Deep mutational scan, measured.
Amino acid sequence: RQGFVPAAYVKKLDSGTGKELVLALYDYQEKSPREVTMKKGDILTLLNSTNKDWWKVEVN
């Protein structure tokens, strides 16, 4: 499932696989259909980080 999360809630990881991955630093509950819920410690695939406030991710 793809959607947006606050950029301040995730940290980029060095995956070494060519995929950009991020680590969820905090729990986040989606507040609109365009967002996704994540739990602290989740590893997500980063799809787009051009917006400084909201990053598009895919929940694996």
Rank of each mutant, 00 (worst) to 15 (best):
1 R>F: 06
1 R>M: 07
1 R>E: 04
2 Q>V: 13
2 Q>P: 04
2 Q>D: 05
2 Q>L: 07
2 Q>N: 08
3 G>P: 01
3 G>I: 04
3 G>F: 08
3 G>D: 00
3 G>Y: 04
4 F>E: 03
4 F>W: 15
4 F>T: 03
4 F>L: 09
4 F>K: 03
5 V>W: 01
5 V>G: 01
5 V>F: 01
5 V>M: 01
5 V>I: 08
5 V>T: 01
6 P>R: 04
6 P>H: 02
6 P>W: 03
6 P>D: 02
7 A>V: 07
7 A>W: 01
8 A>K: 15
8 A>Y: 09
8 A>V: 10
8 A>P: 08
8 A>N: 13
8 A>T: 11
9 Y>P: 02
9 Y>M: 14
9 Y>V: 07
9 Y>H: 08
9 Y>R: 07
9 Y>D: 04
10 V>T: 04
10 V>W: 01
10 V>M: 06
10 V>F: 05
11 K>H: 09
11 K>V: 15
11 K>N: 06
12 K>A: 08
12 K>E: 06
12 K>W: 08
12 K>G: 05
13 L>Q: 05
13 L>T: 06
13 L>K: 03
13 L>C: 13
13 L>F: 11
13 L>A: 04
14 D>E: 13
14 D>V: 13
14 D>H: 13
15 S>L: 14
15 S>T: 15
15 S>H: 11
16 G>Q: 14
16 G>D: 14
16 G>L: 13
16 G>I: 14
17 T>M: 14
17 T>C: 15
17 T>Y: 14
17 T>Q: 13
17 T>N: 14
17 T>E: 14
18 G>F: 11
18 G>L: 10
18 G>Q: 11
18 G>K: 11
18 G>I: 10
18 G>H: 11
19 K>W: 09
20 E>P: 15
20 E>L: 12
20 E>G: 09
20 E>C: 15
21 L>A: 06
21 L>N: 05
21 L>C: 10
21 L>F: 11
21 L>W: 09
21 L>Q: 11
21 L>D: 03
21 L>V: 09
22 V>P: 01
22 V>N: 01
22 V>R: 00
23 L>E: 12
23 L>P: 00
23 L>G: 03
23 L>M: 15
23 L>N: 02
24 A>H: 00
24 A>D: 00
24 A>N: 00
24 A>V: 08
24 A>Q: 00
25 L>K: 06
25 L>E: 04
25 L>D: 01
25 L>P: 00
25 L>C: 07
26 Y>F: 13
26 Y>C: 14
26 Y>I: 10
26 Y>M: 13
26 Y>K: 14
26 Y>Q: 14
26 Y>P: 00
26 Y>H: 12
27 D>A: 06
27 D>P: 06
27 D>G: 05
27 D>E: 05
27 D>T: 05
28 Y>K: 00
28 Y>N: 00
28 Y>S: 01
28 Y>A: 00
28 Y>V: 01
29 Q>I: 14
29 Q>T: 15
29 Q>C: 12
29 Q>H: 13
29 Q>K: 14
30 E>G: 14
30 E>K: 13
30 E>D: 05
30 E>R: 12
30 E>C: 14
30 E>T: 09
30 E>I: 06
31 K>P: 05
31 K>T: 12
31 K>Y: 05
31 K>Q: 14
31 K>M: 11
31 K>C: 10
32 S>N: 12
32 S>Q: 07
32 S>F: 06
32 S>L: 08
32 S>I: 04
32 S>H: 12
32 S>K: 07
33 P>H: 11
33 P>F: 09
34 R>P: 05
35 E>H: 06
35 E>N: 05
35 E>L: 05
35 E>P: 04
35 E>I: 04
35 E>S: 06
36 V>I: 15
36 V>T: 05
36 V>C: 07
36 V>P: 02
36 V>R: 02
36 V>L: 14
36 V>K: 02
37 T>C: 07
37 T>W: 04
38 M>W: 01
38 M>D: 00
38 M>Q: 01
38 M>T: 04
39 K>D: 04
39 K>P: 01
39 K>N: 08
39 K>M: 08
39 K>G: 05
39 K>Y: 11
40 K>D: 02
40 K>I: 06
40 K>A: 14
40 K>F: 05
41 G>T: 02
41 G>E: 02
41 G>S: 03
41 G>D: 06
42 D>F: 04
42 D>P: 01
42 D>M: 11
42 D>W: 10
42 D>S: 06
43 I>L: 08
43 I>H: 05
43 I>Q: 04
43 I>P: 01
44 L>D: 00
44 L>Q: 00
44 L>K: 00
44 L>V: 05
44 L>R: 00
44 L>N: 02
45 T>K: 13
45 T>G: 09
45 T>Y: 12
45 T>W: 12
45 T>S: 08
45 T>P: 15
45 T>D: 06
45 T>E: 10
46 L>V: 06
46 L>S: 01
46 L>W: 01
46 L>G: 01
46 L>E: 01
47 L>S: 02
47 L>T: 04
47 L>Y: 03
48 N>G: 07
48 N>H: 06
48 N>D: 15
48 N>C: 10
48 N>M: 07
48 N>Y: 05
49 S>M: 09
49 S>L: 04
49 S>K: 09
49 S>N: 10
49 S>P: 05
50 T>F: 10
50 T>P: 04
51 N>T: 06
51 N>Q: 09
52 K>F: 08
52 K>A: 12
52 K>C: 10
53 D>E: 12
53 D>N: 14
53 D>G: 08
53 D>T: 15
53 D>P: 02
53 D>C: 14
53 D>F: 15
53 D>H: 15
54 W>S: 02
54 W>P: 00
54 W>M: 05
55 W>P: 01
55 W>I: 04
55 W>H: 03
55 W>F: 06
55 W>D: 01
55 W>E: 01
55 W>S: 02
56 K>P: 02
56 K>S: 06
57 V>W: 00
57 V>D: 01
57 V>L: 03
57 V>G: 00
57 V>R: 00
57 V>K: 00
57 V>C: 02
57 V>Q: 00
57 V>E: 01
58 E>P: 00
58 E>D: 04
58 E>A: 09
58 E>C: 09
58 E>R: 08
59 V>S: 12
59 V>R: 11
59 V>M: 09
59 V>K: 12
59 V>N: 10
59 V>L: 13
59 V>Y: 10
60 N>H: 13
60 N>C: 14
60 N>F: 13
60 N>R: 12
